[in-house]
């Protein structure tokens, strides 16, 4: 399920470091390569990317908080079903809230909101971090991972919307002379963009932190 996960308790690490690792060093999309289904499917526009990112962050933060609070009373044998129920509860809440307060966004994300239940970033962070750390720092970790996921989806959405539709956040960028590269908002465009962004991300990371990535 995961590539590299923190196992050790994070007592000695600062809150900032715990938050920032989700953005760069352990970015869920570009480094851990988690949550690929929503990443590839909904990033046809910036708005969709932000919406999905924030909905996932909401579920991630509350699931991590609850999982961390109840970690001592949960029997080890049934921890996965219990976390799944908790995650599904928050996903359903997020889905209902989107339907009630952001109907257009809810319509454009479609079935991908309920599918946050099976987004492995959430179960991954709950298992790898929240159940081994205090509630406060687990929330910080979840916020960092959520922010990393949201920013990644936003960037993917921006590249695909600009090239594939000639617009950003729905505003047309170019005149009538611009022919959109339709492939960019189709599934192949998702893979192409993700691959290229991942390569750029890893190249930048390798230049900046040559030692850290080998730990």
């Amino acid at each position: 399920m995961a590539v590299t996960m923190e196992a050790a308790p994070a007592k000695s690490r600062s809150i900032t470091a715990e938050f920032m690792k989700g953005l760069v060093r352990e970015n869920p999309v570009f480094v851990q390569v988690l949550g690929m289904c929503p990443t590839l499917a909904v990033t046809t526009s910036v708005a969709n990317g932000i919406g999905m990112g924030l909905a996932t962050t909401f579920v991630l933060v509350f699931s991590a908080l609850i999982a961390s609070v109840i970690k001592r009373i949960v029997p080890n044998e049934v921890r996965i079903p219990i976390y799944a129920v908790i995650i599904a509860t928050f996903v359903t809440i997020a889905d209902l809230v989107l339907k009630a307060y952001f109907p257009p966004l809810s319509a454009s994300l479609g079935p991908y909101v309920p599918l946050i239940v099976v987004n492995c970033i959430i179960m991954g962070r709950v298992e790898a971090f929240a159940t081994r750390n205090a509630p406060g720092i687990s929330v910080v970790d979840a916020l960092g991972m959520g922010a990393g996921f949201t920013v990644s989806l936003m960037v993917l959405g921006a590249v695909r919307e600009i090239l594939g539709n000639g617009s950003i956040l729905g505003f047309a960028l170019f005149g009538d002379g611009f022919t959109p590269m339709l492939v960019m908002i189709l599934p192949p465009g998702a893979f192409l963009t993700l691959g290229i962004l991942m390569a750029i991300f890893n190249a930048l990371k390798a230049n900046r932190e040559p030692v850290l990535i080998r730990t």
């Binding site: 029997p75 049934v78 219990i82 908790i86 509860t89």
Partner: peptide, 15 residues
């Protein structure tokens, strides 16, 4: 096991 799982389900249902 059963008590914990049932409690979580009931709470989730109520919420």
């Amino acid at each position: 096991l059963l008590i914990t799982l049932t409690l979580v389900m009931i709470l989730s249902g109520l919420v």
